[in-house]
């Protein structure tokens, strides 16, 4: 790769990004613009922005590497991502969220939940959860991007981290959600082009669709011995039903879909950015294609890279990279198998994937601080503050604090904790927000007492489980070892279960029981949230 050409391509891309951030700044007149884009976002922009925020670099490189190791059975995850993450999310969650969000004048996800249950406490606690725990997740994405820049530009790590963080902070700070959405659209479109080209070039390289898959099937005898012993049967076959490797694949699929995705504040808020259900219906078309081209292509190309490496080097993918680190497989494959022009495109694709995820996180942290923690929301009846500029300054302060905390966490936290940050945050969001979000959308009887009880249960159970039981986390955090000398308070199978498997169902049950034991909410509060439903849903 020629570094000069890459730097030219990179500078052009960054200039375009900064210009779009400037455009967002020019078009931001009030707090509603800064937080929800004035609720008038174009469906293509909304769908691509949702998808690009959803998919980070680790999804492309990490998922691709996993498929190179475990095989194409992981495609069930891509299927569930599209079905739940797009189809169900947009049509069932999105429409209701947009309607209630517009009725109650909500600008953030915690505010949406707070107003649905008429509880400032829910909004504040939600804002605190986002503002305290999201920086760790944001830090993990910052680190991933900085490592990548360090490698590709031969920069010192700390400078790579500073440059990356500052560029994103500038356009999120200045342009608000419009700056984020415009840049997301550029970044998402680059991602579509990059992954589309990767799929086509891979099939061409391997002699066509049928030949590539047949070659991969014929490679089954070369499947890693350790995996074959655990029940793996090759890259185009599922592992033996019920075998250890089968469980590895299935739990990766179930946790990867992460019901956590449905309750991500930076994703849910995007449903409130469109004008009507018409835009959401159109966004489904774009969103479905986008996620297929990201996770679907990553899994297929990752698995097929084995054919290329075996033909060229006589080794399978996991034996080509050093120490069998699966995260290095996709970059190694791109560098070895793809034409030079594509290497540049793919580098920008990975950078775009990271930037679009980081920007959504920073914006969510900023609004949580400026809007939710120090709640400025009006809970009175008919107040609409669509034209007010109140809250922009405090949100910008929140963005700055969020940037600094994420940067510091990313720089100082040990790599083992950073690697767990994404799943920790997804698990916590699912347990904290999802029970009352689902019930609040589809059950008019849902009330404040139940929502608060479930929220507290979810937070306490998640944190306890992460720190004291789930061995993958508790071992690294180390508190339980310091206190008891053991790595987990409970034995198998509990210690291998992710917190989401325990905390989310428990919080859901508590929400239900407490709701049924307490009075319903006043009829007018509920009617206000759901008004015009009959007209809006049928559109």
């Amino acid at each position: 790769m020629n570094l000069t050409i890459f730097i030219i391509v990179l500078v052009v891309y960054l200039l375009a990004t900064i210009f779009l951030g400037y455009l967002g700044w020019k078009r931001t007149k009030n707090a509603s613009d800064f937080m929800v884009g004035g609720r008038k976002t174009h469906p293509y922009v909304m769908a691509i922005s949702y998808g690009a925020t959803f998919i980070s670099t680790s999804a492309i490189v990490g998922f691709g590497g996993q498929a190179a190791n475990l095989g194409m059975g992981l495609l069930w995850l891509a299927f569930l991502n599209i079905l739940l993450g797009i189809f169900v999310a947009f049509i069932f969650f999105g429409k209701k969220t947009r309607l209630i969000g517009a009725n109650l004048d909500a600008h953030t996800f915690p505010e949406f939940l707070g107003k649905r249950y008429d509880s400032r406490a829910i909004q504040r606690i939600g804002g605190i959860v986002v503002f305290i725990f999201m920086p760790m997740y944001a830090g993990a994405v910052l680190i991933g991007a900085a490592r990548f820049i360090e490698e590709s530009l031969k920069l010192q790590f700390v400078w790579a981290l500073v440059i990356y963080t500052v560029i994103i902070a500038i356009y999120v700070f200045a342009g608000g959600i419009k700056g984020v959405m415009y840049t997301d659209t550029l970044q998402g479109t680059i991602m579509l082009g990059g992954m589309g080209a990767l799929l086509i070039l891979t099939y061409v390289k391997l002699g066509g669709f049928v030949s590539a898959h047949k070659a991969l099937t014929d490679l089954a005898s070369k499947f890693p011995a350790a995996l074959a012993k655990g029940g793996g049967q090759g890259w185009t076959t599922m592992p033996v039903l019920g075998s250890p490797i089968w469980w590895t694949v299935v739990s990766a699929i179930i946790l990867g879909v992460g019901i956590g995705v449905l309750a991500q504040p930076q994703l849910a808020v995007r449903f409130m950015m469109v004008k009507s259900n018409k835009e959401l219906n159109r966004a489904v078309l774009i969103g479905g294609i986008f996620i297929l081209m990201m996770t679907g292509v990553a899994f297929v190309v990752g698995a097929l890279s084995n054919v290329y490496f075996f033909r060229e080097a006589g080794k399978i993918a996991v034996d080509v990279v050093e120490k069998g680190n699966v995260d290095l497989i996709i970059p190694a494959y791109i560098n070895a198998a793809m034409p030079p022009w594509f290497v540049y495109l793919f580098m920008i694709t990975l950078l775009a994937a990271a930037m679009s995820t980081s920007s959504g996180q920073l914006h969510a942290m900023g609004t949580s601080f400026g809007r939710d923690v120090f709640s400025r929301s009006k809970y009175s009846a008919d107040y609409k503050e669509e034209k007010s500029t109140k809250g922009i300054v405090s949100t910008r302060i929140g963005i700055l604090i969020g940037v600094i905390v994420s940067f510091v966490l990313g720089y100082f936290l040990p790599i083992s904790i950073v690697a767990r940050a994404t799943s920790l945050f997804f698990g916590l969001c699912a347990a904290t927000f999802l029970p009352m979000y689902i019930l609040g959308l589809f059950w008019k009887r849902a009330n404040k007492a139940g929502a608060l009880a479930g929220m507290i249960t979810g937070i306490v159970t998640s944190v306890f489980w992460m720190f004291f039981v789930h061995e993958a986390n508790s071992k690294i955090i180390g508190i339980v070892t310091a206190m008891t000398g053991k790595t987990s308070l409970l034995g198998a199978p509990w210690k291998s279960m992710d917190s989401i498997v325990i905390a989310f169902p428990l919080a859901f049950i508590v929400t239900l029981i407490v709701t049924l034991c307490t009075k319903p909410m006043p009829k007018e509060t509920v009617d206000k949230a759901f008004k015009k439903e009959e007209i809006a849903i049928s559109k």
Partner: peptide, 30 residues
């Protein structure tokens, strides 16, 4: 082996579902 083939197929089918739903609604909402 069939279940992996089905995973590939279902990925394409669910995307088609999204595309067809979006296109039909687009036409309807015009």
């Amino acid at each position: 082996g069939v279940s992996v083939f089905l995973a590939y197929l279902f990925c394409i089918l669910v995307t088609l579902l999204c595309v067809i739903y979006g296109a039909v609604m687009w036409n309807k909402d015009k």
